[in-house]
Amino acid sequence: DEDELTGILKKLSLEKYQPIFEEQEVDMEAFLTLTDGDLKELGIKTDGSRQQILAAISELNAG
């Protein structure tokens, strides 16, 4: 699971946030449920980064 998540972050060039997800024990299943508020709480402060992550999440959820 973590590897898939790392792959997604790398694709977005946001792998610098990978340790945050690891630290908070966010797995792929949890990742797919994250909201903008969750990402802010995790410490992802950049709007653009959150938008990219949320776009990836909705794409993955759309299947």
Results as ranks from 00 to 15, higher is better:
Asp1Tyr: 14
Asp1Met: 15
Asp3Asn: 11
Asp3His: 15
Glu4Gly: 07
Glu4Val: 08
Glu4Lys: 04
Leu5Met: 10
Thr6Glu: 00
Gly7Ile: 15
Gly7Tyr: 12
Gly7Leu: 15
Gly7Ser: 15
Ile8Glu: 08
Leu9Gln: 00
Leu9Pro: 00
Lys10Phe: 00
Lys11His: 02
Lys11Gln: 11
Lys11Cys: 01
Lys11Gly: 08
Ser13His: 15
Ser13Cys: 12
Ser13Gly: 14
Ser13Phe: 02
Ser13Pro: 01
Leu14Ala: 00
Leu14Met: 06
Leu14Val: 02
Leu14Thr: 00
Glu15His: 09
Glu15Cys: 06
Glu15Tyr: 05
Lys16Gly: 10
Tyr17Ala: 03
Tyr17Gly: 05
Tyr17His: 03
Tyr17Glu: 13
Gln18Ile: 12
Gln18Tyr: 03
Pro19Val: 05
Pro19Met: 13
Pro19Thr: 10
Ile20Thr: 11
Phe21Asp: 05
Phe21Gln: 01
Phe21Trp: 00
Phe21Pro: 02
Phe21Glu: 05
Phe21Cys: 01
Glu22Leu: 09
Glu22Tyr: 08
Glu22Gly: 05
Glu22Phe: 05
Glu23Leu: 05
Glu23Asp: 09
Glu23Ser: 09
Gln24Arg: 11
Gln24Ile: 04
Gln24Ser: 13
Gln24Glu: 13
Gln24Trp: 04
Gln24Asp: 05
Gln24Cys: 08
Gln24Asn: 14
Glu25Trp: 04
Glu25Val: 08
Val26Trp: 05
Val26Gly: 03
Val26Met: 13
Asp27Pro: 04
Asp27Tyr: 01
Asp27Ala: 04
Asp27Gly: 07
Met28Ile: 08
Met28Leu: 09
Glu29Ala: 13
Glu29Gln: 11
Ala30Val: 11
Ala30Leu: 11
Ala30His: 14
Ala30Asn: 12
Phe31Asn: 04
Leu32Phe: 07
Leu32Val: 11
Leu32Ala: 11
Thr33Val: 08
Thr33Gln: 12
Leu34Val: 05
Leu34Trp: 02
Leu34Pro: 03
Leu34Met: 14
Asp36Gly: 05
Asp36Phe: 00
Asp36Val: 03
Asp36His: 02
Asp36Arg: 01
Asp36Asn: 07
Gly37Pro: 13
Gly37Val: 13
Gly37Ser: 12
Asp38Phe: 00
Asp38Arg: 11
Asp38Gln: 09
Leu39Ser: 01
Lys40Glu: 12
Lys40Gly: 06
Lys40Asn: 09
Lys40Thr: 10
Glu41Thr: 13
Gly43Gln: 02
Gly43Trp: 00
Gly43Asp: 08
Gly43Thr: 01
Ile44Arg: 01
Ile44His: 01
Ile44Asp: 01
Lys45Gln: 09
Lys45Asn: 11
Lys45Ile: 05
Lys45Ala: 12
Lys45Asp: 15
Asp47Asn: 10
Asp47Gly: 09
Gly48Ile: 09
Ser49Val: 14
Ser49Met: 12
Arg50Cys: 05
Arg50Thr: 01
Arg50Ser: 03
Arg50Val: 04
Gln51Asp: 11
Gln51Thr: 09
Gln51Gly: 08
Gln52Leu: 10
Gln52Ile: 08
Ile53Asn: 04
Ile53Phe: 04
Leu54Ile: 10
Ala55Lys: 15
Ala55Arg: 15
Ala55Phe: 07
Ala55Asn: 14
Ala55Tyr: 10
Ala55His: 14
Ala55Leu: 09
Ala56Tyr: 10
Ala56Arg: 09
Ala56Thr: 10
Ala56Ser: 09
Ile57Leu: 07
Ile57His: 07
Ser58Ala: 14
Ser58Pro: 01
Ser58Asn: 15
Glu59Ala: 13
Glu59Val: 07
Asn61Ser: 09
Asn61Tyr: 05
Ala62Asp: 14
Ala62Tyr: 05
Ala62Gln: 10
Gly63Phe: 03
Gly63Trp: 04
Gly63Lys: 09
Gly63Tyr: 09
